[in-house]
Measured scan of single mutants.
Amino acid sequence: TLEEDLKKLQLSEFFDIFEKEKVDKEALALCTDRDLQEIGIPLGPRKKILNYFSTRKNS
């Protein structure tokens, strides 16, 4: 689940933002850096999230 993935990244504090915006794993895989910025995710966590999901998509 998205919540489990965020826990792996030690970013579970952002789960509420994704839940509020109705972003699940499938939607997050389609998000850009700009999308994450617009919903209030800071730069460092955005980079970690985007890297994590891009490596999952390619495997």
Rank of each mutant, 00 (worst) to 15 (best):
E26G: 14
K7S: 09
R46F: 01
K57M: 12
D5P: 00
L43A: 15
A27I: 10
T55W: 05
G44C: 07
P45S: 10
R46W: 00
E26I: 07
K22M: 09
L50Q: 04
V23P: 04
K47H: 04
A29D: 06
P45T: 10
K57I: 09
E4L: 04
E3F: 07
R56H: 07
R56Y: 11
E3A: 08
T32N: 07
E3P: 01
L50P: 03
A29R: 11
P42T: 00
D16P: 08
I49G: 02
T32V: 01
D33V: 01
L11D: 01
L43I: 15
S54C: 06
T1S: 06
F18V: 03
L43N: 14
T32Q: 06
E38K: 14
C31G: 05
K47G: 13
D24L: 00
L28V: 12
I39A: 07
E13T: 02
P42W: 00
F15R: 09
G40A: 01
G40Y: 00
K25N: 02
K22S: 13
L43W: 13
E19P: 00
D24A: 11
D24R: 04
K7A: 10
E4I: 03
D24T: 15
F14K: 03
I41D: 04
P45L: 02
F53I: 09
E3W: 08
K22H: 12
K47S: 14
D33G: 07
R34L: 11
L50C: 07
F53N: 09
K25W: 05
L43V: 15
D5H: 11
Q37T: 08
K25V: 11
Q37S: 07
S54N: 08
D24K: 08
Q10E: 13
E3I: 05
E38T: 10
F53Y: 10
E19F: 09
A29G: 07
D16V: 09
L11W: 00
L11V: 03
I17T: 13
V23F: 15
P45I: 11
D35I: 00
L43D: 15
E21Q: 13
L28W: 04
Q37P: 00
F53E: 14
D33P: 01
P42E: 07
E4D: 07
E3Y: 08
F14T: 02
K20Y: 05
D35N: 10
K7T: 07
D16I: 08
K7N: 08
K25G: 12
N58V: 11
S59I: 13
K48D: 07
E4M: 08
Q10V: 01
D5Y: 01
L2T: 05
D16E: 12
T55Y: 08
S59L: 03
K7P: 01
Q37A: 12
K47I: 14
D5G: 02
K48R: 12
N58Y: 09
L43S: 15
A29N: 13
Y52D: 09
A27H: 14
V23D: 07
D5L: 11
R34T: 12
N58K: 07
T55L: 09
F18R: 01
K47F: 01
T1H: 01
R56I: 09
A29C: 06
E26M: 09
F18Q: 05
R56G: 09
F53H: 06
K47V: 09
D35E: 14
Q37K: 06
I49H: 10
A27T: 12
L11G: 00
S59R: 04
L43Q: 15
T1Q: 02
S59W: 09
F18K: 09
D33S: 06
E13Q: 07
P42H: 00
L50W: 02
V23S: 04
L50F: 11
Y52P: 05
I41L: 12
T1E: 10
A27P: 04
I17V: 13
L6A: 00
Q37Y: 06
I39C: 03
G40N: 06
I41H: 05
F14P: 02
L36P: 03
T1D: 11
L30Q: 14
L6Y: 01
I41T: 10
D16N: 10
T55F: 03
K47E: 15
I39P: 04
I39E: 07
T32Y: 04
E38A: 13
E38I: 05
Q10I: 00
V23N: 03
D33W: 02
D24Q: 10
N51W: 04
G40E: 02
E3S: 07
S12Y: 08
L11N: 00
E21H: 13
D5N: 05
L6P: 04
R46P: 01
G44M: 12
K7G: 10
C31H: 10
A27L: 10
L28T: 04
E4K: 06
L28A: 04
K57S: 08
F18I: 08
D33E: 10
K48G: 01
T1I: 02
G40S: 04
L6Q: 04
R46C: 07
S54M: 13
K22W: 01
L30G: 15
E21Y: 14
F15K: 12
C31I: 12
S54W: 03
E19G: 04
L30W: 14
E19I: 11
G44W: 06
K57V: 07
D5A: 08
K25F: 09
R56N: 06
D5I: 08
E13P: 03
R34A: 14
N58M: 14
I41K: 08
F14H: 02
D24H: 02
L50I: 12
Y52C: 03
R56D: 12
S59F: 11
K48N: 04
P42C: 00
I39Q: 08
F15Q: 09
N58H: 04
D33F: 01
F53L: 05
S59G: 08
L36T: 05
Q10K: 06
R46Q: 06
C31E: 04
Q37H: 06
E4C: 00
K48M: 13
D35C: 06
T32A: 06
E19V: 12
T32H: 04
L2D: 03
Q10W: 00
P45Q: 14
L36G: 05
F18M: 06
E19H: 11
K20R: 07
P42Q: 04
I39L: 13
G44E: 15
L28S: 07
I41S: 08
E13I: 00
P42D: 06
Q37G: 12
F14M: 11
D16F: 11
K25M: 12
V23I: 14
D16Y: 03
S54K: 09
F18G: 01
D33C: 01
A29L: 05
K47R: 10
E21T: 14
R46Y: 00
R46L: 01
P45V: 14
D24I: 00
Q37I: 12
K48H: 07
L11Q: 00
I49K: 03
E19L: 12
F14C: 06
R46S: 10
D35R: 12
K48S: 09
S54F: 01
Y52E: 09
C31K: 15
G44D: 14
Y52M: 07
E19D: 13
I49M: 09
R56A: 13
L43C: 15
N51M: 12
G40K: 01
K22A: 10
E19K: 09
E13V: 08
L11I: 06
T32M: 05
S12A: 11
K25T: 05
Q10G: 08
E13K: 11
E4N: 04
I41A: 03
E3N: 04
S59P: 10
I39D: 05
I49R: 03
A29Y: 10
I49T: 05
E4V: 01
S12H: 12
L2Y: 01
E19Y: 06
P42R: 00
V23L: 14
D5Q: 10
T32E: 12
I49N: 02
I49A: 06
K20A: 12
K57C: 06
N58T: 10
F18A: 08
D16G: 09
R56K: 08
S54I: 08
F53G: 07
L2I: 11
A27V: 12
S54D: 08
D16L: 05
D5V: 04
K20S: 05
L43F: 14
P42F: 00
P42K: 01
L28D: 07
C31F: 15
K48W: 00
E13R: 03
C31W: 15
K25H: 13
